[in-house]
């Protein structure tokens, strides 16, 4: 039944900075099942992108492991590593900065094909046309340059590039947040269709909770480098347990004036504290409306409160 494609175990990623240690990811545990979409949400600076990048092997770990198909990602070498690089691909946030302006769209999409020597000549050209069609762009666009495209079209090109070498797993880091709403919907629908057609697994990183709720099967909430809660997406939205999740959900305005007039909002005081040399205890302590003395001392344990619903908070035993 359980068939994890990716497992993250006690993962830590620290950065040395001038005045101490920046704990970007601190002791994260999660597993992602084959074929599912795992949504990772949190505010800026919570470590969600660092986690995605460490999983991608763009960063080394400080401690802990990332297992992909049972293999420790950060110890892969030679042909195993090459295979891993084909199996996992990334779609970036900024469609303006993530495409080389001096390469044609065709060469951008085929870069992975060239590196892994998967095909050349006519076959390569055919593959590029096929990929362009898959993401809803005309095949003639292969000879154009990125500046000729709008943000939504560029994001489609970025997706085509990620698909080019038939990956199993795609890390999408804020893939639609730079786009207008009507275009966001186009790209999200494309992600969903590609998943159905190719059996892909997604790690979908976003600050937009409504978007993540829509696309993800399970959702993890991060705060200051740690996971605070993980649950099935409908369960998380219906029954949030961690005070941070509750506040986060409450902060999002609903596009419905009737609902907004009736709603009582929980407004968190203050800002997210600095992840440099964080104090002991629960990271959310300073802003938590339900903080207890114990929270300042002990780091809450990661526990399964209900089936498949995990939370790190002293309110739950």
């Amino acid at each position: 039944m359980s068939d994890p494609i990716l497992e993250v175990k006690n993962l830590k990623k620290y950065f040395r900075v001038t005045n101490g240690v920046l704990k970007a990811v601190d002791n994260v545990n999660l597993s992602i099942q084959r074929g599912e979409t795992f949504g990772l949400v949190g505010e800026s600076g919570c470590g969600k992108s660092t986690l995605g990048r460490t999983i991608m092997r763009l960063y080394n770990t400080t401690e802990g492991q990332v297992l992909f198909n049972g293999e420790n990602v950060h110890q892969l070498k030679g042909s195993r590593l090459k295979q891993f690089n084909r199996d996992m691909q990334m779609v970036f946030q900024d469609p303006y900065a993530s495409l080389n302006p001096r390469m044609t769209v065709g060469d951008i999409i085929a870069e992975g094909i060239d590196i892994h020597r998967l095909s050349s000549g006519v076959k390569r050209r055919e593959r590029v046309s096929e990929l362009l069609q898959t993401v809803g762009l005309p095949e003639e666009h292969a000879s154009r340059f990125p500046h000729e495209f709008s943000g939504g079209q560029r994001q489609r090109i970025g997706i085509a590039r990620a698909l080019a070498i038939n990956p199993q797993f795609i890390v999408a880091d804020e893939p639609v947040s730079a786009l207008d709403v009507s275009v966001q919907a186009q790209v999200i629908n494309l992600f969903k269709r590609l998943q159905e057609e190719n059996g892909l697994t997604y790690l979908f990183i976003s600050h937009d909770l409504a978007m993540v709720k829509h696309i993800a099967d399970r959702v993890g909430v991060m705060y200051l480098g740690s996971l605070t809660e993980v649950a099935q997406s409908h369960e998380l939205y219906r029954n949030p347990l961690h005070p941070y999740t509750v506040a986060l959900l409450s902060a999002i305005p609903i596009p419905d004036p009737e609902v907004e007039r009736k709603r009582e909002r929980i407004i968190l005081e203050g800002d997210v504290p600095s992840p440099i040399n964080p104090p002991p205890g629960c990271r959310f302590f300073a802003r938590c409306p339900k903080a207890m003395p114990q929270c300042q001392v002990d780091t809450p344990r990661w526990i399964e409160v209900e089936t498949d619903h995990y939370v790190a908070c002293h309110l739950y035993k």
Binding site: S150, V183, I254
Partner: peptide, 23 residues
């Protein structure tokens, strides 16, 4: 089109997103 292409956090069902095609 605008109203249909946005997601609501309080939707219970996973409704299909209806984008506005084109630019």
């Amino acid at each position: 089109g605008l109203l249909h292409s946005i997601l609501r956090l309080d939707d219970d069902e996973k409704s299909e997103l209806v984008p506005i095609e084109g630019m």
